[in-house]
Amino acid sequence: MRHKSITVVLAIGIVVALLMLIADGSRRHLPNNQEGYRPVQPIAFSHRQHAGELAIDCQYCHSAAEHGRHAGIPAASTCMNCHRFVRSTFGALLAEDKAAKKEKRDIRPVLSPEVAKIYDALALDPKKELASIDGKTPKPIPWVKVYNLPSFVYFDHSPHVVAGVECQYCHGKVQAMERISQFGNLAMGWCVNCHRDVNQNGLNGTRVNASTDCDACHH
């Protein structure tokens, strides 16, 4: 019977497809929903360590958030404010100290392989008092963008930061993330619901007027 065989093939197909969906459901999304996107970055930068343990203010690095549309990824030279001194983990330093004592030699400078990538991007020589390496020019680090908005939406960080919206409100508990993953789904409802909510209930105890006009974001 032909119809029976067709039914069986279709049923098997559907079951296999559903199984596949369930198997890697966390990676599958509706088109344009990038929630949970957690790309590997060129440098294994830990937000948990910097924002969590060391409690560095978000805007120390993402200082542009207050001033314009983009929060911005800090220039490599900003990293050097600290990393000119902090070149590796404490553990690595202790190990080198131990090894030097054991082998009865001077302590060699230790540079963690991840910090070395910043020095490399800036064409700096860590051995020679941070002098530039001849013939090399600084190159930007190709960080992978996590939060991507389609080009038909206009979003500006500065009014949100100025109004006092916590960074974590939209970006999640960054201080607990080893590697950044996308917190919200960036859908229109996600934005608008919050705008409606703060218009009714206020933000941090103050009345705000968050626009829900179409052309506030689509212009």
């Binding site: 990676r27 344009n32 990038q34 996107y37 790309p39 911005g72 990824i73 800090p74 220039a75 490599a76 030279s77 900003t78 991007a121 800036l122 600084p138 190159k139 930007p140 680090i141 190709p142 960080w143 992978v144 963008k145 991507n148």
Partner: peptide, 13 residues
Amino acid sequence: RAPDQYAMAPALG
């Protein structure tokens, strides 16, 4: 996932 996009922050601020 959508293809990766890169944010090329300047090396020197």
